[in-house]
């Protein structure tokens, strides 16, 4: 690389990198050492245990089961949110670029609004709607004689996590819609016209003409969903408590981390050292998968040109 371009690259990168390194990377790296100590979160680090926290999480009888169950729930949550994003995020974006732009804008505003509401309030609202005895949704289902659908949503070991995935999607779908709309607008009209001229159906056109063009964006959203699914915490914590009920059916790394580090409402905490090790493991999983997704994404955008 030329000297001049190197200088340019450094100038462009420096502000962001410096800021990020000082206030995110440095605190993160310096907190990793907690994971090597038996440490309850208060005071100096004294009891060095090496990698015992890690082996305890991964292999011990008492903890490994909880850890792997949480990892599985995070994966499951990712699959659920991908399904919801594909159907509603991409689907609605596809519809939005087909209608008048001035109207489309208002729909986008509407879909985005829930992102502004704090999770506590969203959670309370849906908790009231889903209350199994007098809540709005069970009442409507009763009135429509859909008794089979009237399940104890948040209290069912099978349905609790999907229910929370739907609530999360309700609150957060605005962002993927925005991103997909931006990508879809970039799809050149001529390509679509050409496909139509060849007699391809709408569905066919979408799958074999439009989708390949927006594939990089789709992978971007996949990465964001993956990171988001592994960071899932707020709604589960608020609606199912620190014990991530019913019977740990919604326990994810986030709730396990919180329970281990801070306890909560009278429950005793187990230790910040152990919890940090847990967070580091979760972080490693997310980074490994994200690295693969990022590679795929890069290849997909390279394929376009």
């Amino acid at each position: 690389m030329q000297r001049r371009t190197r200088l340019v690259v450094i100038t462009f990168l420096a502000p962001a990198v410096l800021l990020y390194a000082s206030f995110i990377v440095y605190p993160f790296v310096s907190s990793i050492r907690y994971s090597l100590y038996n440490y309850d979160g208060v005071g100096p680090l004294t009891d060095f245990v090496g990698f015992k926290n890690f082996s305890y999480i991964l292999f011990s009888h008492a903890f490994a089961g909880q850890f792997w169950r949480a990892v599985w729930h995070n994966f499951y949550f990712f699959i659920l949110s991908m399904a919801l994003t594909t159907v509603f995020g991409l689907g609605l974006a596809y519809l939005l670029v087909r209608v008048r732009e001035s109207i489309s804008r208002w729909f986008q505003v509407i879909y985005f609004v829930p992102m502004v509401v704090p999770p506590v309030v969203v959670a309370y609202l849906w908790a009231m709607y889903l209350e199994p005895n007098d809540g709005a949704i069970p009442t409507i289902l009763q009135d429509l004689h859909l008794y089979k659908l009237n399940i104890p949503f948040l209290g069912s070991e099978v349905w609790a996590l999907p229910t929370i995935a739907v609530i999360t999607a309700w609150a957060g779908m605005g962002l993927p819609i925005l991103i997909f709309v931006a990508a879809l607008i970039g799809v050149p009209n001529e390509v679509i016209e050409a496909a139509k001229a060849d007699g391809a159906s709408q569905f066919r056109t979408f799958v074999s003409v439009i989708f390949p063009i927006i594939k990089p964006t789709f992978l971007t959203i996949t990465t964001l969903n993956f990171v988001g699914a592994f960071g899932a915490f707020d709604y589960i914590y608020i609606m199912e408590g620190t014990q991530a009920g019913p019977n740990y059916a919604t326990d994810v790394i986030g709730t396990l981390f919180y329970r281990t580090a801070f306890g909560g409402f009278g429950t005793t905490a187990q230790g910040v050292g152990l919890a940090t090790a847990l967070a580091v493991l979760g972080f490693v999983i997310v980074m490994a998968v994200s690295a693969i997704l990022v590679l795929l994404q890069k290849r997909a955008s390279a394929d376009l040109f």
């Binding site: 038996n38 004294t46 009891d47 015992k52 926290n53 305890y56 429950t267 005793t268």
Partner: peptide, 26 residues
């Protein structure tokens, strides 16, 4: 029974094992 012993500050030796205890309330 709800108060597992905290990690003491000056136990230089420590027990060198993971402290994973819950109280009765948990």
């Amino acid at each position: 029974m709800d108060t597992p012993p905290p990690t003491p500050i000056n136990s230089k030796k420590g027990n060198k094992s993971v402290n994973d205890t819950n109280g009765i309330f948990s």
